[in-house]
Design a protein around this nucleic acid. Structure first.
Lengths: 206, 206
DNA sequence: GTCTATAGGTTGATAGAC
DNA sequence: GTCTATCAACCTATAGAC
């Protein structure tokens, strides 16, 4: 065996991985049972550790929640990292909407849970401001693509890229919220296909 | 004194109004401090009653929450009751967006708070299904207006009314959520005026 | 209907052994 | 790092007087 397949010294990461297990358990509780049931005992039980371990790793409940939020919002940091691809614009937008909805499915439970307490609310808001995250990232990415296509003459010149991007994002967001909150009634609303058709009518070349 | 200015028998409503005070207090706590701080003590203290009174009127915490939700979502029942007015379509849509945002400001704290617990989530979902409430109500109202204008020739025939209505509703919704969650970044997003301009380009007569 | 007093349960957090 | 044992604080809910 050469030096390639032996890992000499696992830096930092403890072999038991208790911390990671706790974080995952916390996120699972958040998604399945809501923040009202996120107690040190419940999390510890799921993670297969004692609840004192939770306090050892995260000091207090607020610390656990902050760490869980930060972990659960990691997908946010990857939003811009998409290859624009060379396919038709409508396909691109459809793919973007797909990704957005799945992304919101991951992040919404966290974001909504934070609304149960002013301190958590502020912590999440500060975190997003600090990392310069937020809806504008998505809007910038999509509208940048649209603007480039406008310049290239592949799309109509007579629409506002930022607004179209906002349509894609806000309808995806609202759809994800309706699904998550079990509000239903989706079948009585315009389908995503209908939404995309209308968008295409606005941006297609003459 | 004739019989007009004397109220012979106040039916049902107790003179003290403790129940109403408790409900209002519960909604205030929900909006200001979040559901995590909605305890019988906090509510009772705000309402100026003892916490035993809370249990007398609502039996248990779940009963209080259900009653508060029902009370806080009353604005939902008024959604359709708007006079279409005889002004220009763009003004109508702007007014609708205004009303929607204020409406969401009222209802969102309730809806988001319910996400903290699966039982509350289901209770709210069932209530809305029972009363046949939901986003489709707003879409129906707005798209109905748009369709009528299309038939009258006041608006372009080449757009899908339901989708335009969804744009108005979902962008208003998302804006209200961003404001409520203190996510900020609104100044880096297209203004509502820009959104309405784009919508106008889609629906204006040729 | 409203109060005081309190029982009974759950939770956040700490101490100290291993 | 992880555990058991434990405490103080808080919360829901009830009992019983007024």
């Amino acid at each position: 065996m050469t030096s390639t397949d032996e890992q000499p010294k696992r830096r930092g990461r403890p072999p038991t991985g208790g911390r990671e297990a706790i974080l995952e358990a916390a996120l699972a509780v958040l998604r399945e049972q809501g923040i009202a049931h996120l107690t040190s005992r419940e999390v510890a039980s799921r993670a297969g550790v004692s609840d004192a371990s939770v306090y050892y790793h995260f000091h207090d409940r607020a610390g656990l929640l902050e760490a869980a939020f930060e972990c659960g919002m990691k997908p946010l940091l990857l939003v811009g990292a998409e290859e624009p691809d060379a396919r038709e614009p409508l396909t691109i937008l459809n793919r973007a909407a797909d990704r957005l909805e799945r992304f919101f499915d991951d992040v919404l439970p966290i974001l909504l849970a934070a609304q149960s307490d002013p301190d958590l609310k502020e912590a999440v808001a500060r975190y997003m401001e600090l990392k310069d995250l937020g809806p504008h990232k998505g809007v910038d990415t999509i509208s940048g693509y649209l603007r480039a296509q406008q310049r290239a003459g592949t799309l109509n010149a007579d629409f506002e890229p930022g607004v179209i991007a906002l349509f894609v994002i806000d309808t995806s967001f609202a759809r994800a919220v309706r699904r998550q909150t079990h509000l239903g009634g989706e079948e009585r609303l315009p389908s995503r296909r209908a939404v995309m058709d209308q968008i295409w009518r606005m941006i297609r070349p003459d």
